[in-house]
Design a protein around this nucleic acid. Structure first.
Lengths: 332, 332
DNA sequence: ATGAAAGCGCTAACAA
DNA sequence: TTGTTAGCGCTTTCAT
């Protein structure tokens, strides 16, 4: 059997109460008894039972983290940030993976509630999840997503700015004919915002009539799309709104024999790991992923400690332009 | 306050015991009372308190997962596999990130023990961690690592085979002058094994005197290394033992203007996400990462349910060769 | 400064 | 089949 405070109490000749107070750093214990107790605890290799403590206090030092796809670098880097912030607080992270599946998402939320966790950091698959958390009174922070009016704590990156920065970079290089390839999605407004940023930059530079946003659902469709587009028109600049689409677009461009950046400058919004070092490197707009995770953890800790109610915290981080080899002046 | 079985008992006019039995599917409850209780539980939106249950049963449905770097795709994909296997078992995953830091590793192990978790799946930073787990009597499975004689459950990929397959592929293409760039590490025997596989393949084909293994610690050093090597000699084939080194090696080769695969065929051992679709694609030897995670979870469940003691389970998975554009016949 | 005792929600042993 | 009761390990009143 594991060592309990009762064992320590017996050995020290004091009550369990005293042991509890001594070990949890409360006062009301003389320094000498505390020292004695701490010493014995160490000797016996005592480890507190987090379940017992959590039950008694009606809340455990657990934080739930629920993401759309744990296998995706974007999320795992954010989780890294969360972990980095929480490790010092002795919080235990409970992980959930929704796979963008509403039923799985709900399953994990139930689990997290059942463990009496302090709060949840979530990249939600459905707004229903957020409503549920609010209804259940679980503190939560939304990760990397502007909830579009749903009032809650949230950390995200300014998507309009991402689209804007990408486009502005091309404009500054002299491009006047720039298209945007966007991911189609009903639930996710982020892509729309990136496209808005693109339109904004175009508008500011008198390119309104040369503004085209194309939509597709995945990389495979993106490949067909760029092939079709190139048939019709040959812009000098291209902004890809989502790095997961990039692979299809690039495959298409390669097939067409389009040279980058000589014939076409390309900016990718997102963080493809391969962008940085390949012979053919890409200019990107990147999010500070670890930072997003850290901030989300911080906001959650704020909320759980301060018991705030309606004054939601919103943290908007900036993306940054990383210029590499896929952009240059327009052809001729 | 949350709904407890006492609330349900009162409402149903039965004892807490009956409620407990009814809800946990034990027999000794008539079907009609069970139905009534289940109905009430649902109405009241009852959720069992996992902490209370865990404490009473002296073990909770938690599984600890401790990896070297949660932000790394390799680990997050394995975690994805673990999650996939455990979600059906209603296990809760507690995540830990050691950053290859022994102190952090120990910290998380302590945490996991304190939550009475069922067992741990670990990619360890130190053998000390394994000794600790064994000493504490915590069931565990080592993830993606041959523990080199340390007796425990483990899932890993045959590293010798990885090196062998990579080299054999080049030999089959006609290469007779192949070098190997390896990652230097005292704790990790995997790299050494990959190099052994390389040597084995060379030996089998009479290339023993043309066998050279170069070592470096990271990508930056790898870049310098390949530059120095190319100064001295120009092999026709190159095996990169670790995909994280590839970025440096490729940067170096690009700088030197070496054409791939015309002048040099390259095989990368590992799973760089960018390998598959870029204009310049790479032949790789890949591990079934999700599968590794799934198997590890499965082994752990086996162990925790069967209470085996010394007959350790070892699961060796096969890597596979993915031929892409970076390999071809040797020059001239 | 310290101790006694209650109780968090649940399960399991024992009774009825 | 169902109820009573003890107790998991801890924290927290309330006494002393």
């Amino acid at each position: 059997m594991r060592v309990t405070i009762a064992d320590i109490a017996k050995r020290a000749g004091v009550s369990v109460n005293t042991v509890s107070r001594a070990l949890s750093g409360k006062d009301g214990v003389s320094e000498e008894t505390r020292a004695k107790i701490v010493k014995i605890a160490r000797e016996l290799n005592y480890r507190p039972n987090l379940l017992a403590r959590g039950m008694r206090q009606d809340r455990a030092d657990f934080i739930g983290v629920l993401v759309l796809d744990i296998g995706n670098t974007v999320f795992s880097r954010m989780i890294r940030g969360i972990e980095n912030e929480l490790v010092g607080e002795s919080m235990t992270i409970i992980i959930g993976n929704s796979d963008e599946n509403v039923a799985k998402e709900r399953h994990y939320l139930e689990m997290m509630i059942m463990t009496n966790c302090r709060g949840v950091i979530i990249s939600h698959a459905s707004t229903e999840a957020l409503r549920f958390l609010k209804k259940e009174g679980v503190p939560f922070v939304v990760l990397d997503r502007d909830t579009q009016g749903f009032p809650c704590d949230q950390v995200y990156v300014d998507n309009v700015s991402m689209g804007y920065q990408a486009t502005k970079h091309l404009v500054d290089l002299g491009h006047r004919d720039i298209i945007f390839i966007s991911k189609q999605s009903e639930v996710d407004f982020d892509h729309r915002k990136r496209a808005q940023g693109y339109e904004l930059a175009c508008g500011e530079h008198g390119l309104r009539q040369r503004t085209r946003v194309y939509e597709c659902v995945d990389a495979a469709e993106a490949k067909l799309l760029i092939e079709a587009i190139w048939q019709e028109e040959q812009p000098t600049g291209l902004v890809i709104g989502q790095h997961s689409l990039a692979e299809g677009v690039l495959a298409g461009l390669t097939g067409l024999g389009v040279r980058i950046p000589e014939e076409l400058s390309v900016v990718i919004i997102g963080e493809p790991t391969w962008a940085s070092f390949l012979p053919w490197t890409f200019t990107t707009i990147e999010r500070p992923l670890e930072r997003i995770g850290e901030m989300a953890a911080r906001l959650l800790l704020n909320r759980t400690s301060n018991k705030l109610t309606d004054d939601y915290q919103r943290c908007v981080l900036e993306s940054h332009l990383v210029v590499r080899g896929s952009t240059g002046p327009p052809r001729n």
